[in-house]
Write a protein that binds this DNA or RNA. Structure first.
Lengths: 237, 237
DNA sequence: CGTGGCAATATTGTCCGACAGTCCGATTAT
DNA sequence: ATAATCGGACTGTCGGACAATATTGCCACG
């Protein structure tokens, strides 16, 4: 059975400080863009040493809650960028040894939805980005690495165009996981590239024409194709 | 147009060190469970001061790549726990001021899929957890806070039962975002609780009977209901 | 031979003080 | 007004220090 008493967790000072600052940020008492007081000043305010403050700041910085403009010295409150967040998630997933099947099922849930909303809400600019990614994938001289990057960019662009930050942020981590499999697929299966390019074309056309159902359907087919490709690739070794 | 030269980014030492250690971990050269060398030792190996090493370690610790058992002094390599990861994501999303609509669309994409796979793969134990969450939501004396927690637990349990780590991890951040809205809904709409309980019952029955299509369908209805509830609540506000 | 207890050691959390490099703001020179 | 310059402020990094506590090795004892 469980213990009667919880051990009292006397968190180290650097963690308490990090938490206090974090609270201020999420409570908007520190607004995005506001500069943080200097380390020396914070150390004085919290009554600890500057080294301790620095350890606390590192935590918030890595989470993307604090950051600085290029070449700037003082830290400012920032919104975590999708990239920051998604990196952490995909690394976590990678360490959990997710299977392609897990990844595929998740993509199958998110990407068609993203495509559907993209068809409804895309802006001309986003359409442009989408086409450019597809073009880079189609380009004859593109090597595997570039092609894979283009495919990832395509998915990112669709998610972006969906105008839904939650979908975009949830989808982003999947990209990093997709890359290795995709690389093998494109390398080993001659027809893979062509099929991807074709699917992207259909999806873009649907998004452009604002046909959300078609966009969803084509994206579903596209993702299903990945599964077939993966199975073929595994069999071919 | 783009600049001719990239600014040279001379990353601070603590970041380089963090990256090196991180690489070792993702490359599995440092295995989960392995103890990290002591700070002093690391400082010697990297040829930097211990303070610098500590700042690097903080980054990895917050990401869940390093951690220690309770009462332990030495750090060990750990797998990021879903909770760690999802906390960061939901905080990021919160700071991006996601709308309920965004959240809802993402839930609509993920939860039905999770329910579907849960019906196929749930274990008896997971079924048990699911029922317990539903029971806690149903319980008459449960106040709003408890009920909301139970609803969140229900979603978590479904995702868990899906046997898909990617879906589970992608879904987790949504829960924290859902809570505030859900709280208002349950507080202001008398019928909300009952409808939720009913839907949960249907979903559990379908998952138990391994009817994946029904599980998906009921979950879709359940989520749709949230949107209606939210609209009503806003109007009644 | 295993084992519990104790002392020596190692390690972490925190502090202090210091210094070079660099960014920023103000002042001065053009 | 604009440009060059200068001093102060701030960060990144270093070295050393100390208390508290986890870990380890050792030894006596059953």
């Amino acid at each position: 059975m469980s213990d009667l008493f919880e051990p009292l967790n006397d968190y180290p000072a650097y963690r308490q400080i990090a938490n206090q600052i974090e609270e201020r940020i999420v409570a908007r008492s520190l607004q995005v863009g506001d500069p943080l007081p200097s380390e020396t000043d914070l150390a004085r305010q919290f009554g600890v040493n500057r080294s301790t403050v620095r350890e606390a700041i590192r935590e918030l910085e890595i989470q993307g809650l604090l950051g600085r403009e290029r070449g700037e010295k003082r830290l400012r409150v920032t919104r975590p960028k999708p990239q920051d967040v998604s990196d952490g998630v995909s690394r976590a997933l990678a360490l959990h040894d997710v299977t392609f099947s897990d990844l595929w099922e998740a993509m199958m849930a998110m990407e068609p939805a993203a495509a559907q909303y993209a068809a409804l809400r895309r802006t001309p600019g986003q359409l442009q980005v989408l086409s450019s990614a597809a073009a880079r994938c189609k380009h004859r001289e593109a090597d595997t690495i570039e092609a894979v990057a283009a495919v990832v960019d395509f998915f990112t662009a669709v998610a972006e165009a969906s105008g839904n930050q939650v979908l975009a942020l949830s989808q982003a981590p999947l990209n990093a996981l997709l890359s290795p499999t995709l690389t093998r697929m494109i390398d080993h299966l001659p027809q893979a590239r062509a099929r991807i390019v074709e699917a992207q074309g259909k999806i873009i056309a649907a998004i452009k024409a604002r046909k959300s159902d078609q966009a969803r359907t084509w994206m579903e087919k596209h993702i299903r194709d990945f599964k077939r490709g993966h199975e073929l690739e595994v069999r071919a070794g």
